[in-house]
Design a protein around this nucleic acid. Structure first.
Lengths: 106, 106
DNA sequence: ATACATACATTGACAGGCGATGTATGTAGA
DNA sequence: TCTACATACATCGCCTGTCAATGTATGTAT
């Protein structure tokens, strides 16, 4: 288990939603963005990433469509929905509260 | 799933160690302290609390002894070890790092 | 040819959290 | 006296998110 994995557990979906808030994207690209944003400190494991996509799509927080690449590997793009935006806002507020709570307790 | 449960997952042991850093204590009392410290917003579920004690004791982060109550229910007191203190310091530093990481990502 | 990067996907196992349940002691009130 | 409640510890079995391992397919560089 890596340094952060246990502490970031529970934030995976919010992190993905935050990326999709900027623009439609696909798994591989999201992970590249995360690596860049954290100077290589953090990225999602593929199994974690794709199972999060499944959950988010089932919950109608995101929608997917195939990209129209004529060359290279196909890409499945994801787009955040209205529900996803609401969820993101809620999660962000929860994070702010939880952060204070933990700071008070440790 | 409650508001905070998924986000606090992974902090349970650190929260317990933080309490034991102040003084030797026992399950029920630790939970009372947590409730007080958070104005009733947060407490550990008993099953969570006691399984955390088991893990921490196996890992030699805490030690236990029976209280000498002559009346009322018996209490099993826990005491943090040197190893537990080191673990606490490490966890706290990890938390500071993770907090920054998450803030950057969401 | 070979290795590597891009890209998606599933399976099975593991670990932490927790609902449900059980035990036992002592106190307050009807 | 009976009942309810607070204190206090403990375990079982389920659920859920994470992830190692593995597989598929395309394109590029050496």
């Amino acid at each position: 288990m890596s340094l952060t994995s246990d502490l970031i557990r529970g934030h995976t979906e919010t992190i993905i939603l935050a990326q999709l808030l900027k623009k439609d994207s696909y798994g591989y690209e999201i992970n590249k963005s995360l690596r860049q944003a954290t100077n290589g400190e953090y990225e999602l494991k593929e199994a974690t990433l794709y199972s999060a996509f499944r959950r988010l799509e089932s919950a109608e927080m995101i929608e997917s469509y195939w990209g129209d690449e004529t060359t290279g590997a196909r890409r499945r793009y994801y787009k955040i929905t209205i529900l996803g935006r609401a969820k993101y806002e809620k999660s962000k507020a929860d994070w702010e509260n939880t952060k204070k709570l933990i700071d008070r307790l440790i």
